[in-house]
Structure formats: C-alpha cells, structure tokens
C-alpha cells in the first residue's frame, strides 16, 4: 500500500495499470428542451481507477453521473455495463449491480439516524420477507445483525462512531458529506460516483475526504468516478481526467496531459476572440 502511495506522489502515475473497462458510454446525448446538456460524449471507466470528470459550471458533469446511474435516460447513445449494452440505465439495475453515488447537495434521509442511513444502503442486500420482519425474530433478526456488522465496519472506516445515533439533519455539513459517503459505501459498490464530494469543505475536511476516497479505491478496489472543482485535489488523486465543456468532451487523459491540453486551458481561462 505504501508503494502505491509513492506511485501516486509521482506526478506521472503511469505505473498504475487498469483492467478492462467496467462501464462504457458511447455517443451519449441528453437534452432538456432546447438545451443540449450532453452532446455526443463517449468515454469508458476502467476497473479500479479514479476517474475525475471536470469542467466549468453547466458543462454537463452532474447530468453525466445521472445518466450513469439511471436517473436520466439519454436520448441516444448507449451504456455498456456488466456485459449488457443498454440505451439507458435503470436506477434499480444500477443499484443492484453495484453503482452507488453521493450527491452535490446532500441527499441524506434527514429524519433518520446515521446508523439507519447507512443501513438503508444495505436495503438491496436484505431479503427477509415482511412476515419475518413483523416478528423481528429468527432469520430477520440474524439478517439485521449481519448487516449491522458490515455497517459498523463502514462507520469505523469513516470514523463516525460518535454520531451513530444522531439524526443526520442535526449534523454539520462536513459530517453529512461523510455520512453520505458512508451510505454509498454500505452498498458495497463496484463503481462509486461522487458528485463534488469536497464542495464547501475546509482544507482539513478535504484532506480527510481525499484520504477516504483513496483508501476506498485501494483497499476495496472500488472504481471511483468523481466530479470535483478543486483542481489541486483532482490532479492529485485521479488517474484519469475527462473534461467536459458545454456538454462536449474536450479532453480525456492523465492529469498531466489534461493540464497541458490547449482546449482545457481555453475552456477554463477563456479564449480571446479576435
């Protein structure tokens, strides 16, 4: 693990090799009325990588994540996942096959405790029927305990033991973000979609969050797709960067390649029109 971290510290992380694509997006088009949110974008997500999607505001980054986990259906194009080529993802199929996500503006279940929020992430893995649950005895209780044990591991990992029983609505922003990551992790995801996990955080919180993201990636081999505006963080933790601008993909490569790409510089800094 120390070795892997050394590799990361190097500016050119070429040494990390990634497996086959786990998710391929081809010619995705998505429009809302007259607005083209995503315009013919294709890219792939490879197993075990940390992929960052960046771009100016309104570039279509969140829409892209929404397509990946099935909240939006693209008007054309295809998504290949788990050997199935689909015109668009179904939220239930995505969740059942290990796609978990967090949201830009926190979407926790505010009235529930941290523990219950995380347990909700296990919903698809629990299958005792209603009658057993009504009795809360035997198999249903065993199931609850088994999943509680996993959730406790996530709680330990994210260091949120102290807020287990606190209703999440009462937690400060930074902790809510962490609980939301926890809820996604409780799903044991293969692909974790993070929509601006560090937005609105201070430096320490960003460091903590970056550490969690990298540890998830390294320890569980989870593939991570994240949207982030903090370029320092993006360039440090991602293996590959996809840049969107006005719904189009303008660059795709390692952080160094992207940093040097003229289109990206133009998109971020503006370009002189003469």
């Amino acid at each position: 693990m120390a070795e892997a971290e050394n590799v990361r510290a190097e500016p050119s992380a070429q040494t990390r090799v990634f497996g086959e694509p786990v998710l391929t997006l081809e010619n995705i088009e998505l429009g809302f009325g007259g607005v083209k949110a995503i315009d013919n974008v294709s890219f792939e997500v490879r197993k075990g990588e940390v992929l960052a999607i960046i771009g100016p505001n309104g570039a279509g980054k969140s829409s892209m994540l929404n397509c990946i986990n099935g909240f939006y259906k693209p008007q054309s194009g295809s998504i290949t996942f788990k050997g199935r080529k689909l015109p668009g993802m179904d939220p239930h199929f995505a969740a059942a096959n290990g796609v978990a996500r967090t949201f830009q503006n926190i979407a926790l279940f505010r009235g529930m405790s941290t523990l219950d929020n995380l347990m909700t992430g296990r919903v698809l893995k629990m299958n005792r029927n209603f009658l057993w649950q009504a009795l809360y005895w035997g198999p249903a209780q065993r199931e609850e305990i088994e999943h509680r044990a996993y959730v406790e591991k996530v709680i330990d990992f994210l260091e949120i033991q102290a807020i287990r029983r606190t209703p999440v609505g009462r937690l400060p922003y930074g902790l809510q973000k962490r609980v939301e990551l926890g809820r996604a992790l409780a799903m044991e995801p293969e692909i974790l979609l993070l929509d601006e996990p560090m937005a609105g955080m201070n430096v320490e919180e960003k460091q903590d969050m970056s550490r969690f993201v990298l540890e998830v990636n390294e320890e569980f081999g989870t593939t991570i797709v994240l949207i982030e505006h903090d370029m320092g963080v993006v360039m440090d933790i991602s293996d590959r960067v996809v840049v969107l601008d006005y719904g189009r993909k303008i660059a795709d490569g390692t952080p160094d390649e992207v940093r040097a790409n003229q289109h990206v510089i133009d998109a971020y800094l503006g370009v002189a029109h003469d």
């Binding site: 909240f71 279940f109 919903v123």
Partner: peptide
Amino acid sequence: RDMDIAAELIG
C-alpha cells in the same frame, strides 16, 4: 419520506 430520489437511486 425523507428523500425519494436518493432512495430510488439506492435501489
């Protein structure tokens, strides 16, 4: 009750 969209995306 609390967040139906997030609930749907959890499965």
